[in-house]
Design a protein around this nucleic acid. Structure first.
Lengths: 132, 132
DNA sequence: CGCTCATATGAACAGTCGTTCATATGATAC
DNA sequence: GTATCATATGAACGACTGTTCATATGAGCG
């Protein structure tokens, strides 16, 4: 630990948001990381994106859609959930712009909205593979 | 206690893959996608991983740890949450093996558990950047 | 027209989540 | 020893979530 760090040991950093009563151990790190932090909006959006993906039904839906464009009833069969449950899940995914769909007659064909989503799921399964 | 032994707890499995009364539009697609689907355990684990990341406090924590190894109190300052809230969040992240820590005296230094996590967050922010 | 199919959606319910508060542990300092 | 610091954790509470059920919309068919 540097002398410079040692000197600032018990100083409090301006939290510029709320009264957080925690001491700072390494003010240099705190300032450095804070400068890199994304905007509150981006953080909020990303958290909502992850939250939407944080459900087995929706993980299966997104994975399935990363392989094929699929209609709601086939998705329901594949993921083993009711049509209603899948439709509600698709709405959540749509609202986060994770999936889109095209209507052909009475059938709605869903697919992933962009290539980030497929990579997100793949990266996730890569991480999980080491846990099972 | 290792993070590995903490990983267990609430794992719920849905085994009802039969009560689905939906017609199939394209049986070839259904069979093809089904064959590629990951195991129920992997899907469950990935959903839990995403769910843990689906919270602004924890997104900030993981992002911060992708830049620096940090102790709990500095994390609390950076993300603007109480020490208790951060500690609870870190436990959830630990249980999913997203972060690990080393103890040095009374200070616990946290860091990301592997490089997948940092890429997951980066990929997520890439997706989100197009929404804001 | 009436009927069925594919999908969407609102309400309701049981379960879960994230925070706060109070307190515990264990290390360091005096 | 006592005091303080850094962290962990259980309980509790309000807020939120995912499903089911019932129903609605709207396209295609006869």
């Amino acid at each position: 630990m540097s002398a410079r760090t040692e000197l600032k040991k018990t100083r409090k950093v301006d939290t510029n948001d709320d009264a957080c009563e925690v001491n700072v151990v390494d003010a240099r790190k705190v300032t450095s990381v804070r400068r890199k932090m994304h905007s509150a909006d981006a953080v909020q959006l990303l958290a909502e994106t992850f939250r939407v993906l944080g459900d087995p039904t929706r993980v299966k839906i997104v994975f399935a859609l990363s392989k094929e464009e699929l209609c709601v009833c086939d998705l329901a069969t594949i993921v083993g959930a009711s049509q209603s449950a899948v439709s509600h899940s698709l709405r959540a995914l749509r609202q986060m712009e994770l999936v889109r769909y095209r209507k052909q007659g009475k059938i709605a064909y869903y697919s992933l909205d962009d290539e980030h989503i497929g990579r997100l799921i793949d990266e996730g399964f890569d991480h999980v593979r080491e846990l099972v």
